[in-house]
Design a protein around this nucleic acid. Structure first.
Lengths: 192, 192, 192, 192
DNA sequence: CACTAACCGAGACGGTACGTCCCGTCTTCGT
DNA sequence: ACGAAGACGGGACGTACCGTCTCGGTTAGTG
């Protein structure tokens, strides 16, 4: 997350720099990929100096995490709010898969970065993984109450299995389609 | 995979160089981590020139993939051969978790590299993921035949869910313990 | 020649880096010879990064040209100022030969580099050859006015012959001694 | 010079390899220049292995010296044989300049190499410089006898001055034209 | 209304890894 | 013992980023 160390004194930070950097980062990563996008590229595209970026984020990964986390939090709310239909778990997965069509490559890069930097890993977990985990947990709890999943289902394990399966295919470049969503949802559906 | 362009003519490649490079790579990565291990380090530790490495592998990631894939294939065989006990799925997961205690960090790095290089991703899938997937599939098929998992279980989906859950926690730095193995195995156990 | 692209903006170049690089280059070339001195060696000896060198000179040859041209221009002034005695041409040659005892090997390397790189050749000509040529020309003009060389001497040809003879022996590893200076000076001395 | 260490036993050397290497060396150096021509290039162009080259010459410079020395020795004889006319020195210089139109660049490279390798320097001197020096010496001696240069001319110094002036301009990329030949010849012409 | 502190861009800094190139040697097989 | 072929250890090269530092200049709030 962008860090703000303003003490009140001195010239205030340029309010336009952060959005410009976030947008430039998002655009360049989507265009050229994470690895091919350098810090210098992002700062130049945002029309700012490199130091301005470092003053607000510790590095490339954190900036790009912010650049893609914004959208993600909106989506999590959407998913949480509406998970209707006869098979809400399947519906949740389908919508999540759909959202990854655009942001998937960037998320893969962030997950990659999390492997190389433990501090970033924890940040990524808190900002990205945990909220979504909570959302799916809620969906599953609701499904359990409505009887569409077994009453004794281990919800935490089910969340790990479903999101794990999602990331598993995403990270390996395998397709995330409706059939996959249905098959995964089928794994934990209540036996009638 | 190491590429071998032997045409028969000319001086043959040094048979000791490849093992030396693989072992040096494996040792250095386990000691210092993936990112902190450079190509020069590996070549020097193996007592070879840098060009000898480039002659056999396209880069660091492919070499290290080979360095860890060797051992992996042995382990896959072990796991496949013996998955005994009342809950073979749980046992399989437990053993797999145990094996990751040592190699986990390196595998995380390889998975990270797979996100930055599509060609390497495919290689990693073929050399690492698919064999293990087959092993778990066989375990599940056996379990289905012996009645310890439901007869109508979607084996492919179950494999994705179990291995997905494994990678999910591994990549996020969360613990892979016996309790987790039991919980995941419980998800797909037959309801008696 | 060192190139200075200062635009006024940004951090100014370290004023100590260039002298340090020049001195390190000069010292290492005199110690180990031109070919045995690498760019990395020079940068390390100067306590600077390699890129700092490349930011100021296109390569090794240009840096070393500068490293030896500095001193050379001083010497040229010295030679120009004082060319006394009954045979000023011979005296000029003797002093020039003497100065080459130390710098000769480095100059040979620079002349060698000039053969491999036309751009460097021109630079070498302008920075090294032309100034010395002018100095000798002045000495000869003075000698002509004082009657110690023939009045109708073709000064340009004489300069070429004298410096040519100097380089000819220098480049072939033949001795540049007082006798040689006297013999060359004798070629163009006025017949009494 | 190509060295021949055959002992009589074993397979005799391929008689075609040496000419092929010499011709390939000559062609490539004239086409691409000395520095841009690697040992591998020459061997490949000659259809031979690199070791065959090293078995016959110590390195690139010696091979190329041989490649260009062949022609040179013919030319030296030509020059020696016929130096007619009213000003034989000028004529000798003019012809020598003319011959350098083609081989000049290669000779410059050889002289460059002589600066980096003392052993080659001596070889170059013996194979190239000394014979030509003798030829010019003979021309000057003849001219002295015929009265076209002063009787007390120091022939060795004159040779050094004339060839030195030649190399001086050649190595600096300056033109070797008839005017220059005339001016140099004029320096040592007898005053009538 | 000046001062001052933190900002801004630009870009140089030391450092490190990369992948390429060539060197001169060595090692195979076939002739 | 030669030949072609090509791998070997070694080392320099020039490039690309990294994260930091240092300029001159700008822009608020404070004294």
């Amino acid at each position: 997350m962008e860090h703000d160390l303003t003490t009140g004194s001195g010239r205030p930070r340029d309010a336009e720099a952060s959005p410009a950097l976030l947008e430039a980062a998002r655009r360049l990563v989507l265009e050229k990929g994470y690895a091919a996008t350098s810090i210098s590229d992002i700062a130049a595209a945002a029309g700012t100096g490199r130091q301005t970026l470092y003053r607000r984020w510790p590095g490339k990964a954190q900036l790009i995490l912010d650049a893609f986390a914004e959208h993600a939090s909106d989506q999590v709310d959407d998913l949480h709010a509406a998970a209707p239909g006869p098979d809400p778990v399947r519906e949740f997965l389908r919508r999540t898969f759909r959202a990854l069509d655009e942001t998937g490559p960037a998320l893969r890069s962030l997950m990659a970065q999390a492997q190389l930097d433990p501090a970033f890993c924890e940040l990524f977990r808190q900002r990205f993984i945990v909220p979504r985990r909570a959302a799916l947990h809620a969906v599953l709890a609701q499904a359990r109450d409505s009887g569409s999943v077994p009453a004794d289902l281990d919800l935490d394990a089910a969340v790990a299995a479903l999101f794990g399966a999602l990331w598993y295919r995403l990270l390996l470049g395998e397709p995330l389609d409706d059939g996959y969503a249905a098959a995964l949802a089928g794994l934990i559906r209540a036996e009638p």
